[in-house]
């Protein structure tokens, strides 16, 4: 199966790889997937006082599409409010990266990662 140009680009030049301090109250961390299933995504969002996502970092264990999906998401969420970020749908990711049907689950995982990270952030604000 051939990968799309965009998947290859994100895979070869992943954006925003890295880690924030997960104990920082302005950081939300989402880790989804399982090693046994062949993919684990860790997405971290740094949120400003005004509720805007200022920065994002990721690390992903998984296939090229999983890496590309998470890399893309870090670009997309930056500058968005939390509510706006929650509107990103897996279908948008799949479409942008032209994922084949067998790789749709990677985009689902990326959407889940956003939700998990935001949930973690919200939990810290209580």
């Amino acid at each position: 199966m051939a990968y799309s140009e965009k998947v290859l680009d994100h895979y070869e030049n992943p954006r925003n790889v890295g880690t924030f301090d997960k104990d920082d109250t302005s950081v939300g961390t989402g880790m989804v997937g399982a090693p046994a299933c062949g993919d684990v995504m860790k997405l971290q969002l740094k949120v400003s006082d005004k509720g805007v996502i200022e920065d994002a970092k990721f690390k992903t264990y998984g296939c090229g599409s999983a890496i590309a999906s998470s890399s893309l998401v870090t670009e997309w969420v930056k500058g968005k409010s939390i509510d706006e970020a929650l509107e990103i749908k897996n279908s948008d990711i799949a479409e942008e990266l032209a994922l084949p049907p067998v790789k749709i689950h990677c985009s689902v995982l990326a959407e889940d990662a956003i939700k998990a990270a935001i949930e973690d952030y919200k939990g810290k604000q209580k």
Binding site: M31, V32, G33, P35, K42, K59, T60, Y61, I67, H105
Partner: peptide
């Protein structure tokens, strides 16, 4: 491995089998 969250966890000494994974 630089990209891998599992590698980080291994390096931090976390036993991966003790983690509660959300299997999908």
């Amino acid at each position: 491995r630089e990209l891998s969250p599992l590698w980080d966890m291994y390096k931090e000494g976390i036993d991966l089998s003790s983690v509660q994974w959300a299997a999908h």
